[in-house]
Computed example of a mutant assay.
Amino acid sequence: METASKTERSPEPPVRILVETLTHLVPGNGSYERTYAILHRICQHHWDCDFTVPKFRYATYNCQFAINNRRCFFLVDYGKSQNDDDVPVLYYEWTGETLKPLPRLATDPEIQAKLKEDLPFTRQRSKREKREVPIRRLVKSRLHYEEYIKRSETDYMREHPEDIMWLKAHLRPRLWRTFVAAMNASRSADDPVMKE
């Protein structure tokens, strides 16, 4: 069980908590279970409760769980503020067993820029026009993040063999086998079995 003083455990809102870890250290199976495992641990560590929306907000970065040893981040925001510069950020490392303070993140200019520019505490509606992601890139991303591939996506891929060839060229063999298994699991009786 993690131990910490009450003042360390219960920071008053507004507060941000940023956790750095490696993908293979995050417990669970699949993107959803693994993400929420860390979010719950963060909230339990500080507030003795599970992560819930809308009380807490979160963001993740680089959580490609299908790839071991990938540096990834989890951010939990709690509370509201009129001035983002007044919101303290607590930095941790998840070791696979416990959250350890990691103050070096506070001095990392890349991390600080990402927090300030891309993930402000007070979220604004994006003025950027959202580009539609090609299905083949979406499927590749789902495989890397260990997310479920939707039936509509496998149907699309089945109808576009050029996208299947692109995907095969851009995936590690283990992830290609996962894709083939997903294609075969979602095929109808009329569809041929896909070979590796």
Rank of each mutant, 00 (worst) to 15 (best):
Y32R: 14
F73N: 03
F51E: 09
A182L: 12
L90N: 07
E93H: 09
S5M: 07
K80P: 04
E20T: 09
N62T: 08
H144Y: 12
L75P: 03
V15M: 03
A59W: 13
H46R: 01
Y148E: 13
R125H: 12
R70I: 15
L39E: 06
T95I: 13
F56V: 11
R128C: 14
I17T: 08
R137F: 14
R34E: 08
H170Q: 10
L75A: 03
T60W: 01
V139G: 06
A59S: 12
R123C: 14
Y92T: 03
D77M: 05
E196P: 00
E110S: 06
L18R: 00
F121A: 02
T178Y: 04
P11C: 00
Y58W: 11
F74V: 03
R57W: 02
I42Q: 04
K150F: 13
Q82E: 12
H160C: 08
S126R: 10
T95A: 06
W166D: 10
D191V: 13
T95S: 08
T23P: 07
V193S: 05
D77T: 04
K114N: 11
N29W: 07
D50P: 01
S5A: 12
E117L: 14
A4E: 05
N68T: 15
L90E: 03
Y148T: 14
Q44D: 12
A182N: 11
E93W: 03
R104G: 05
F73M: 02
L138I: 12
P120L: 03
L22E: 12
H45Y: 15
E2W: 14
G28W: 11
R142D: 12
Y92I: 01
F65S: 00
D84A: 06
F51L: 13
A181N: 10
I135F: 02
P88I: 12
R136G: 06
L167V: 10
P13M: 02
I135R: 00
H40F: 13
V89K: 00
R137K: 10
E129F: 08
I164A: 11
Y156R: 01
F65C: 01
D50L: 11
G30H: 00
K195T: 15
Q44W: 03
V53P: 05
A181M: 08
Y61E: 14
P161E: 00
K130H: 10
T154K: 06
L175K: 02
R158T: 12
D163V: 09
T7V: 15
